[in-house]
């Protein structure tokens, strides 16, 4: 049972959180201008690095805030708890 640091509530057990996948995948500014392939990339494709990975978490059982955290996928260690994403 890992601890995850909520920027607001502090360290809590991982069961209090839900995972939101890769962080900073911005919604395209003009979806209509994209080719089908470009759109499919946005909808379905995500990075899968071996090493630090910026991802989104929500403190579902606590303050309900979404935040970005960097986790090393080799060790599951959180590298640097970052501020609430903007």
């Amino acid at each position: 049972m890992q601890l995850i640091s909520c920027p607001w509530c502090g360290p809590r057990e991982e069961v209090e959180f839900s995972y939101g996948g890769q962080a900073a995948v911005a919604y395209p500014e003009h979806p209509a201008a994209l080719t089908d392939e470009q759109w499919a990339r946005f909808v379905f494709f995500r990075d899968n690095p071996k090493g630090p990975f910026a991802e989104r978490w929500v403190h579902a059982a606590g303050c309900r805030r979404w935040f970005t955290a960097v986790r090393d996928t080799r060790t599951h260690r959180f590298v640097s708890p970052s501020e609430v994403t903007s």
Binding site: C9, R12, E13, V15, E16, A61, G62, C63
Partner: peptide, 10 residues
């Protein structure tokens, strides 16, 4: 105060 889990309930 704290919002957390008691058993499986928030």
């Amino acid at each position: 105060c704290a919002q957390t889990l008691l058993g499986q309930s928030a």
